[in-house]
Each structure stands twice: as C-alpha cells, then as structure tokens.
Simulated assay, not measured.
Amino acid sequence: MTAVTQHFIERDDGARVELFLSSPPATTNGAILFVHGNQGGLLLGGKEFADNGSLVRFSSRLGITAAAVSQPGFGASGGPADFCGPATQHAIIAALAFLQQQPMVDPDRIVLYGNSRGAVASAMVATKIQTLRALILSSGVYDLRDAYERSSRGLQQTIKTESGATDRAFSDRSALHDAQRITAETLLLHGVNDDRAPVDQAERFSAALAKAGVPVSLHRLDAGHRLAGQLVMPFLKDFLTRIFRPAVTLH
C-alpha cells in the first residue's frame, strides 16, 4: 500500500525543510519533486500534494517516488519566504539531494516540476543542478524584472517585500539569462490568458533553451494563470511515461 510520509531535512544554512514522500513498495525507478505555487494564502506547502492525492497517484501509476517540498515560509519549512530566491532554491536543492540518496530512487531519473512561483525557483535550480533528468514548468516567470514591471501593484508589493526588488534580486530569480546552463529536457505549460505571468515569458524562455540546444517543448493552453488538471494531464502523461519508461501510464 502506497502511503505518504513527512520528512524534515536541512538546507545548507541549517534551516528546516519540510518534504512529503510517497514511494511504491518494491520498485526502483525515478522520482518527481513537486514545487508548489502561492496557494492563495493558505501556506500549506508540500502538504497540498499529499492532501489532494497527487503524490500517491503519481507514485502508484508511474511506479516512481513522488515528493513535494515546502518552500520557506510555507508549511513547516523555516522561513521567511523570499519569493523564489536563494533560500527557496536551496530548499529545493536539499530536497533533490535527499531524493538522490533514497534506495528506491535512480539518481539519474529525477524530474523537477514547479508551478507558478515554484516554476520560477525550479527553473533557477535547473541552472545549478545539471543531473536532472527533466524539468516541468507551468505558469512561470523567467525574467522577473520584466514581469515585475508589468504586474499589478499587489503582486509588485509581494515581490518587493520578499525579495527587495534590487538588480541582484531580479537576477537571482530570472532563469532566462542563464538558460545556457540548463541541461534537463524541459516541458513548459502556460495559459495564453495568464494575467500574472504573461505567456511571452514562456515563449522567450523556450526560445532561449532551444538556442542553447536543450530539448524543449512549449504548450500554450486556453487558460489563465491556474491550469486545470484536465488541460495539463495529457501532456504530463505523454512526457512522464516516456521519461520513466517502462511504466504504467496515468489515466
């Protein structure tokens, strides 16, 4: 019986990182790490994926280890939140390192999947970790300064409060400028009507990855910032089934 367990690990600065994990009972395969978005102020962190059944579903149907990390300031991870910045990126890196050490995980077959602000941080992690098998990013921003200048006042205030909105802060959160350092095959999912992360962010990032020789596919979906499961699942099913082949496909 596949179950979800809660773990606490440490970032490189000693801060606590919360991680939820679901592994199949007797299969050594790859792993997928989910990185959540803003969550509408609920601050559930990785628990969102445990509560909605995603971890068990992905783990059991694909025969992989499925995990979800809580960003700083979310769930039981140490804060404060830093809007996808170094602390958040180091939390994700610590979670990836933990997965690589698990006996049920093939360290060469780990997929990182970030949504919204989780996509911003995950894209930056992919510029630093070249051992990822694949990268999935949905509704993300890859040039934060450009997105900041086009954002609502409320979102601008959140970014400024958490990051400082300095030149260094924007640079530390803008994977577009370091696309040539990414090696993982990348799947981009983005709503054409996204009012928080304009679709041209994904288009520009996709072009930069392709120019750098990274295998990349971009799917523009008829949606806003939030992408419904029925829209993204066909793309995820095809992508992940191939990445983790042989495996049972999602339904």
Rank of each mutant, 00 (worst) to 15 (best):
219 H>W: 02
10 E>C: 01
76 A>L: 15
68 A>W: 13
117 R>V: 15
38 N>H: 15
19 L>Y: 01
138 S>W: 00
44 L>T: 12
42 L>S: 15
11 R>G: 02
232 V>W: 01
98 F>A: 10
48 E>P: 00
215 P>W: 03
114 G>E: 03
181 R>H: 14
243 I>A: 04
166 T>A: 11
49 F>T: 12
25 P>G: 10
140 G>F: 01
7 H>G: 13
166 T>L: 12
27 T>V: 13
221 L>C: 01
112 L>Y: 02
71 Q>C: 14
99 L>H: 09
83 F>Q: 04
122 S>D: 06
32 I>Y: 04
229 G>R: 11
209 L>R: 04
98 F>P: 05
213 G>V: 06
183 T>K: 14
64 I>G: 03
210 A>Y: 04
146 D>T: 11
75 G>F: 11
43 L>F: 15
41 G>V: 15
236 L>R: 07
27 T>N: 01
162 E>L: 15
85 G>H: 05
243 I>G: 05
208 A>V: 02
202 A>R: 07
12 D>N: 10
231 L>T: 02
4 V>L: 13
167 D>A: 15
79 G>E: 12
234 P>Q: 05
188 L>F: 06
117 R>C: 10
102 Q>Y: 02
234 P>G: 07
103 P>F: 08
223 A>H: 02
202 A>M: 09
92 I>A: 06
